[in-house]
């Protein structure tokens, strides 16, 4: 996709987007509502027309091609199985349109249903199977036509947490097995980081960063990416040279070209560790635990430092050593940090 733009009246949904997806790769587009990720997918599918820009697949320009000639498989956020057809007929529908012989069609439909583990449900109607199963059938239906690109538009958002995680892993397994080029749109960062080869974080119709999940998380390109992907503490600091001094502690900078002066440093909660403090001394990194959120294996502890609060993510056993009300001394691990201008809104995390 090159220079792709789309406006809805005065609203700019896509602003000159450039994105290249390699063959067999799974790219997840991540961003808040209205960032343009779904618009990107719909332009690619041909369900909407671009105002400007070009879309090429395998060297062929498909920008002006109607949706039914684009050869893209798509799974939608809403349940999209045809209610009057059985699961098998749904999966075979695309092949029927391609005039594939009925025996071959049936065989392929069952093959695809096997792939998603639903061949036993072939003769049921969509309303007779669960939401998760419906989305798996939709995936089988999209893959049955052997599309050049698979487009997934938040296919897991209507499902409950457990089914969502299972289906997420299943989608990744099938994508690797089939080796199909896939674009996955989601607003769930955990989903994007877990499933993708590369994650594209979008804001205001533009790509802020396109990189492997670990890089997006550990080396965010912009303060928006840092704040959108994972939780972030916003702490006042001062840049001098290649470090930023935050509450008396020097942390290395991600962007060495940052001009000296006061900034907001973005510190990940997992870079903060706690130790019990019985000295009673007041210090810039000494505070009181005010709340602990249990997340399973880890817990998130909120510490009041007097002038601000800071979040620390610890293993649950470590967090239990510091109940609410206890005095703690904080240590910030010297990971490279990103900074934002001080004019940004203050609320921490």
């Amino acid at each position: 996709m090159q220079g792709l733009s789309r406006r809805y009246g005065p609203v700019v949904a896509l602003d000159g987007l450039d994105l290249t997806v390699q063959a067999g790769e799974l790219v997840a587009l991540l961003g808040p509502s209205g960032c343009g990720k779904t618009t990107t997918l719909r332009l690619l599918a041909g369900l909407e027309d671009a105002d400007a820009g070009q879309i090429t697949v395998g060297g062929n320009d498909i920008t002006r091609l109607p949706a039914n000639k684009r050869d893209m498989g798509m799974v939608f956020q809403a349940y999209s199985l045809f209610p009057h057809m059985t699961v098998r007929q749904n999966v075979a529908f695309g092949l029927r349109l391609r005039r594939v012989h009925s025996d071959q069609r049936d065989r392929r439909a069952i093959e695809m249903l096997d792939l998603v583990g639903l061949s036993t449900q072939a003769d049921r109607y969509p309303h007779q199977i669960s939401g998760g199963q419906q989305q798996r059938v939709a995936l089988a239906r999209a893959l049955a036509i052997e599309p050049q690109v698979l487009l997934l538009d938040e296919p897991l958002s209507a499902l409950d947490a457990k089914v969502r995680a299972q289906l997420r892993d299943q989608i990744r397994r099938i994508q690797l097995e089939v080796g199909i080029t896939t674009l996955f749109v989601t607003h769930d960062q955990e989903e994007a980081l877990a499933i993708a080869d590369r994650v594209g974080v979008m804001q205001n119709g533009r790509l802020e960063q396109l990189a492997p999940p670990t890089e997006v998380y550990s080396r965010p390109a912009t303060s928006f990416v840092a704040e959108f992907v994972g939780l972030t503490n916003r702490l006042e600091g001062t840049v001098s040279g290649s470090t930023v001094t935050v509450r008396g502690r020097d942390l290395p900078l991600v962007d060495l070209s940052t001009p000296p002066g006061p900034v907001i440093a973005l510190v990940r909660p997992e870079a903060v560790t706690l130790a019990s403090d019985s000295s009673g001394d007041a210090g810039p990194l000494v505070g009181t635990v005010i709340a602990t959120t249990f997340l399973g294996a880890t817990s998130r502890v909120t510490v009041d430092l007097g002038d601000t609060t800071i979040l620390a993510q610890l293993t649950t056993s470590d967090a239990m050593e510091h109940p609410a009300g206890s005095r703690v001394a904080l240590t910030i691990r010297p990971d490279p940090v990103l900074v934002a201008a001080q004019t940004s809104p203050e609320p921490s995390a």
């Binding site: 109607p66 039914n68 939608f76 349940y79 999209s80 239906r141």
Partner: peptide, 11 residues
Amino acid sequence: TLSEAARSLGA
């Protein structure tokens, strides 16, 4: 959604 699904399948 039904029509978009059908269109993407080639209808």
